[in-house]
Design a binder for these strands. Structure first.
Lengths: 197, 197
DNA sequence: TGATGAATTCTGCACCCGTTGAATAACAAA
DNA sequence: TTTGTTATTCAACGGGTGCAGAATTCATCA
């Protein structure tokens, strides 16, 4: 005799853990940390809210587990840094804008930006992630004494572009074709990386 | 006979309305829109939460009423635009960095940035405020055909600097002296305003 | 003086939040 | 087969949220 047909473990593999992570990524990116609730993540994953805690611990834990850069710096950076040194800014700008145009990349970046402005612990985690995986290697590649400072300036323009074009949606910057945005921003990055300050 | 000594109107002028507005500005800037509660605003103003609705309507209404630019564009822009055209970038950078270094200006700007990333209605309001009061005049002063686009690029670097230096706190950008930050950023603004794109 | 309106507090409603604990069912290992 | 581990649901707790309504007191003006 089955007393309750709803509770209890399902047969077979369910992939619930990943479903929760995917829904979490989606919602953190779309709404930001505060406006994403554990309950709504569970709903999108088609799952009971208690499973979120069960698999991923607290909400902050889940966020940190799910927060990743939209690319693998160790793969990408060498490709950008190699080749004509005068074109590094262009290659960097191209890569960034491409990443922002692809829905998945944009989502991840927006999640980072949104979280950094609301949840202090997230801001700390993001700062450390960026410093270790992007700014530090970038600075080493530049080699100059003030390389870390330069890397920070680069980051400031990248973040600002993200905000202005994709979050606030300032026109006509928001609807300009990607290529002309690259051309506009590339010299800035080039100067921050290798030009006079 | 007084039945309840706490309720009822106080004698004299209380300045409650302004106290609420001030506390709201403070908290929206420090914690962002979502993490600021009507109740905490009331507490900081030393006042009952119901007075917030009473004077300023809903929470969004209050935010919009309290949200202002940290300067008067009509006053400031002419001062920046006048003089040597090759130094506009420097004057603009100086003004921005100065505004960000002063606690009150920084607070207001942070409030704008934080709200823009969390509350969509605020993002819309901010976009319109910026467009009407800053970007439009700036574009007219530039005069070129793509002036609005140029103004957007300027805004992107300004916002990015705010995020990187004051919100996320990327080092050593965050602790560099204001003057050297001005020197680093000025050429970027200058090119966005008047240089080749 | 009397009447109207504004300022103030209290109470409470309806809802959402993150998290926990117990109960149940399937799987894995013995 | 028994035993323990894991996946799952349900129910609930304690707390926070924005906001509306009633009651009370002061101010203002006829």
């Amino acid at each position: 005799m089955v007393s309750n047909p709803h509770t209890g473990r399902r047969a077979g593999q369910s992939g619930t853990r990943e479903a929760i992570a995917t829904a979490a990524r989606q919602q953190f990116a779309a709404r930001g940390y505060d406006r994403t609730s554990v309950r709504s993540i569970a709903q999108e994953a088609g799952v009971d809210p208690a499973l979120v805690s069960h698999f991923h611990g607290s909400k902050v834990d889940l966020f940190l587990a799910v927060t990743e850069l939209p690319f693998e710096p160790a793969e990408v950076l060498p490709r950008i840094l190699a080749g004509d040194p005068d074109e590094i800014g262009t290659r960097l700008a191209e890569f960034i804008v491409e990443a922002l145009e692809a829905p998945e990349g944009r989502g991840r970046i927006l999640a980072l930006v949104r979280a950094a402005t609301s949840e202090p612990e997230a801001a700390r985690a993001i700062r450390e992630l960026l410093t270790a995986k992007v700014l530090q290697p970038l600075a080493e590649a530049i080699g100059a004494g003030d390389a870390q400072y330069r890397a920070g300036l680069v980051m400031s323009q990248v973040v600002g572009l993200t905000m202005a074009r994709y979050v606030v949606g300032i026109e006509p910057l928001a609807s300009r074709d990607p290529h002309s945005v690259v051309r506009s921003v590339a010299p800035t990055l080039q100067r921050y990386l290798a030009g006079p300050l």
